[in-house]
């Protein structure tokens, strides 16, 4: 896949014998690599036969986080990389995206959206779609998780 360097793909079983897949990889900061990364993670989720609606929510959140990392974090510089980590099971999806930028402006309110502005909707959507969204201290690492039974809009 274009611009994707996969370091780890493992299928494991937890103590209860349930399968989960862990994937870690880095991509160069390019739109084509973002598309390839999303396709690869979607394939992994489909491999575990997860519910379509659940997969779609995680897929959109991953794509939004990667596009933020590419355009805003890495300022579209193809020499920079984006690191991605995913732990996917039938009960929970956890996604990590880290770029080389200076981070999300943490003082901004991401719980609402300027309805008519064509931009600035990515993190708002992620917060609506995922159960938990954590941005680390430096602001350039986002951790998103989604449980099986969650509803939309939990992150108000």
């Amino acid at each position: 896949m274009s611009g994707v360097s996969v370091s780890t793909v493992v299928e494991l079983k937890d103590l209860l014998g349930q399968s989960f897949v862990e994937i870690r990889f880095a991509i160069s900061s390019k739109e084509t690599a973002v598309a390839s990364a999303v396709a690869m993670v979607r394939s992994a989720m489909e491999m575990l036969a997860l519910d379509n609606n659940w997969v779609a929510r995680a897929e959109l959140s991953l794509q939004e986080a990667l596009l933020n990392a590419h355009f805003h974090g890495n300022e579209s510089d193809p020499r920079r990389t984006i690191c991605v980590g995913c732990v996917i099971s039938a009960e929970k999806i956890e996604l990590h995206v880290e770029d080389e930028g200076t981070g999300y402006p943490l003082n901004r309110d991401y719980s609402s959206v300027d309805t008519t502005n064509p931009r600035g909707r990515g993190l708002f959507l992620i917060r609506q779609l995922m159960d938990s969204v954590v941005i680390d201290g430096a602001g350039n690492h986002i951790v998103m998780s989604l449980g099986k039974e969650s509803n939309y809009g939990n992150q108000h």
Partner: peptide, 13 residues
């Protein structure tokens, strides 16, 4: 089958 925030922006424009 799939829509992202970029597409939403395109619709607004």
């Amino acid at each position: 089958d799939f829509i992202d925030s970029s597409a939403l922006g395109l619709l607004l424009l």
